[in-house]
Design a protein around this nucleic acid. Structure first.
Lengths: 328, 328
DNA sequence: TATTTTATGTCAAACGATTGACATATTGTG
DNA sequence: CACAATATGTCAATCGTTTGACATAAAATA
């Protein structure tokens, strides 16, 4: 059995109240007693029962992370950085892979509420889930709009789309194609599309649009891309996520199109993984560290009930990573 | 405030004991009462306080996952599949990125103990951490050997190394190179090396060995690989992980070596990501789903105190995924 | 009809830590 | 020396749920 407060008290030769005082830093305490208590805790390898503390109204120091899937390198990185961030504040993260499944997401929310987590950070695709409102929990979202004053952090999707268009037009592309990795309305994501389209229109260049449902498999995407690339023969393709962009490059090459001579390709996300292991891909890079940082910061702000200066949306700047899928 | 048991009881017009009986399925209960209670729970959106239940000796239904880093696609996939598996059993997962840092791992163990998680699944690199013994928690490990009867699940590393060697030798490689993604002793990992070396020796073929410390950055790996490839000019390279294999292919090409004509390359891991987005790479594929499944199954077995038929090591079969980095 | 079985209720003690109220020493300060 | 500040102790209630002991009443069975 795990040692309890009383065991520590006995070993240290003090009362349980005193031990509790030491742990919670209340009242007057001599250095000597603190020392005794701490060493007793060490010896017994004592860890206060979180369950018992929570019952007293203390925080669990537990945050729920709801994201679609860790198999997306960007999400994996965001989750990892959030987790590191939380850890440094003494918080733990419960991970929830919603798999883009609203039912699963709903069940997760119930679980998280039962666990009485202190807050939730979500980057999942499904919205209109009423439990979000009911939960009464502090929630922060990544790159998703919610109806009810849930703060959202995202990269500057609009500017990203614009930058992608401007860049490839500058470098000579005239016959553009836009591939949306997932069609969901209301996602900030969509600004990537509008940003791109606006610039294209300003230059009076046509844009062929391909949209995938979010659950399209790589195989389906490949087949579709192959067909669209072959049929339309674009000389510049912007994909709203890196993974689709990779497929796009690969299929273009299979069709005998040279990248970037015949067709330039730009992706979106710029995870560490893509930067390191797909050196060819040019992409719009999201500031992941800043995003993770801000998400946690906002959550803590809400946790501490400092309901002050909370914006509804935080939009962080993106930048272009230019590599071989773009001409010089 | 969250509704409590008493609120449900009042709304359902029964006693708290009855509600508790319904929830815990104890004693005699009429269908009618159950119905009333369930509907009251629904109406109030009642979730029993896990903290209170845990205090009564119930399980948290919480498992700690300690892995090095989610930025490795294989780990991300393993974690994701474990999490899905746990979820279907009503369990949640706390995620811990140890970042290959023993100190962090130790802190995590403490946290997990304080949280009174029901068990731990670890695939982290650091061993000899005494807290593992002290924790008294059921632990299962992935691809790591521990001294003290902690069950381990791994892919058949030895067979994987052998298969890699046999395959490339069969396909004509005579000047072999072995690149170890991380040098750690005592890891099952090492069998990949010995397996490869044994077959090479049996064929009286020389093997040049390159070893990286686990924390070598991609940049360092690239530079080293470039030099070793250039100096040794191997015609067959086996890398003990896919990421290093990708770097290897890329650097070989930069050096003007053709893959697979001049040099064949085989990796190890075969995560979904690599299969989908690096179609060129040939690799030894670990059965990730089976691994995740087994890890969870073993953990549950220990949780239920069925200390029966528990092997120390479970070695699951691997298979070769042959693609363009190998000759036909 | 007598006796089980079924169905529910009341009550109170746990689980482990926190905390307020209050008591009692030992210091230190003016 | 008086009075405050410091240091610790005792005691009991509390958080929300579980559970055992016991009581009671209705329905089912013998």
């Amino acid at each position: 059995m795990q040692p309890k407060l009383a065991d520590v008290a006995k070993l240290a030769g003090v009362s349980v109240t005193t031990v509790s005082r030491v742990i919670n830093e209340r009242g007057y305490l001599s250095a000597e007693t603190k020392e005794k208590v701490f060493s007793a805790m060490q010896q017994l390898n004592y860890q206060p029962s979180l369950a018992a503390r929570v019952l007293q109204g203390k925080q669990f120091k537990l945050v729920g992370l709801i994201f679609a899937s860790l198999e997306n390198p960007l999400i994996a990185q965001v989750v990892e950085e959030i987790e590191n961030n939380l850890f440094s504040h003494g918080y733990k993260a419960i991970i929830c892979n919603s798999m883009d499944n609203p039912e699963k997401e709903q069940q997760y929310l119930k679980m998280l509420m039962a666990n009485q987590v202190d807050g939730i950070i979500t980057g999942s695709h499904n919205e209109g889930i009423k439990e979000y409102k009911m939960s009464g929990l502090p929630i922060v979202s990544y790159d998703r709009y919610f109806q009810n004053k849930i703060p959202t952090v995202s990269s500057d999707n609009q500017a990203g789309g614009e930058l992608a268009a401007r860049t490839m037009i500058e470098k000579g592309s005239k016959k553009l194609m836009l591939v949306s990795g997932s069609l969901e309305k209301r996602a900030p994501n969509n600004s990537r599309i509008t940003g791109f389209e606006e610039i294209a229109k300003a230059h009076q260049l046509p844009v062929s649009v391909v949209e995938f449902p979010f659950n399209a498999t790589p195989t389906i995407r490949r087949a579709t891309l192959r067909e669209k690339l072959g049929a339309y023969q674009p000389d510049g393709v912007f994909c709203t996520d890196d993974q689709t962009a990779l497929l796009c490059i690969q299929e273009a090459k299979k069709l005998g199109m040279r990248v970037p001579e015949d067709v330039q390709v730009i992706g979106y996300d710029g995870s560490n993984y893509v930067q390191e292991y797909h050196p060819e891909l040019s992409t719009i890079v999201q500031p992941v560290s800043d995003i993770a940082d801000l998400l946690v910061r906002i959550l803590f702000n809400r946790l501490q009930k400092n309901e002050d200066q909370l914006l509804d949306n935080y939009v962080l700047p993106i930048k272009l990573l230019q590599r071989d899928s773009l001409r010089n």
